[in-house]
C-alpha cells in the first residue's frame, strides 16, 4: 500500500538569476569560483556551498545566494538579478509523486530521466512550474507566487485521488 503524499511549503529563500553573456570557459571558471560548483548541465541541478543551483534555461541558472556579492564577482561575465520573490516552492514527499504529477501535466512524469538531480519545466494544472527531483521520494515544485495558493490547493485535492 502506498503511503499518502505530504505537501508542504518550505520557508522562502533568496534566489538569484544568473544569465551568462556567453556560455564560455571564462564564464564557467568565474561561476565556479563564485558559487563553488560548475554551472549544472541542462535540465539538472546541484548543491553548492550556499544552496541549490538550477539550470533554468539556455545560458541561465537560478542560484540560491545573495545578489550583490554574486553580482560583484560575476559582473564581467553575467547579468545577475534578484528574483527571490518571483518563485514560491512547494515540497511533495512520498513514493507516488509521479502519479500526482501525471494527473495534470505536460511533463513525462514517468520518464527515467526525471530522476534525482533533474529539473524540468512544464505546466501542471494550468500553472507554469519547475520540478526539481530531490530524491526518489521527494520533489520540489517552483511556481509563480500569484498561483501558489491555487497550486497548493490543487495538489492537496488531487493527492487524495492518487
Amino acid at each position: 500500500m502506498t503511503e499518502p503524499l505530504t505537501i508542504s511549503q518550505p520557508s522562502a529563500t533568496r534566489w538569484v538569476r544568473c544569465e551568462a553573456f556567453t556560455d564560455d570557459e571564462a564564464f564557467r571558471k568565474a561561476f565556479e569560483a563564485a558559487v563553488g560548483i560548475a554551472p549544472p548541465k541542462p535540465l539538472t541541478w546541484a548543491v553548492a556551498k550556499d544552496g541549490r543551483v538550477l539550470w533554468a534555461e539556455v545560458k541561465a541558472w537560478l542560484v540560491e545566494a545573495d545578489a550583490e556579492p554574486l553580482a560583484e564577482r560575476l559582473q564581467d561575465v553575467a547579468a545577475i538579478s534578484d528574483v527571490s520573490h518571483a518563485w514560491r516552492a512547494i515540497d511533495v514527499k512520498g513514493s507516488n509523486w509521479r502519479e500526482l504529477l501525471a494527473h495534470e501535466t505536460t511533463l513525462d512524469a514517468y520518464s527515467p530521466t526525471l530522476a534525482p538531480g533533474a529539473v524540468v519545466a512544464g505546466l501542471w494544472s494550468h500553472v507554469p512550474v519547475m520540478v526539481l527531483v530531490r530524491s526518489e521520494t521527494e520533489i520540489t515544485l517552483y511556481g509563480p507566487p500569484s498561483l501558489a495558493h491555487y497550486l497548493s490547493e490543487a495538489l492537496h485535492h488531487l493527492a487524495g485521488w492518487v
Partner: peptide
C-alpha cells in the same frame, strides 16, 4: 535575446512577480 541578438552581453530577468 535568444534568437535575434544572442551576441549581446545582456541578461533579461522577468521580475513581474518579484516586485
Amino acid at each position: 535575446r535568444n534568437v535575434l541578438r544572442p551576441d549581446l552581453r545582456v541578461g533579461v530577468a522577468n521580475v513581474q512577480e518579484h516586485f
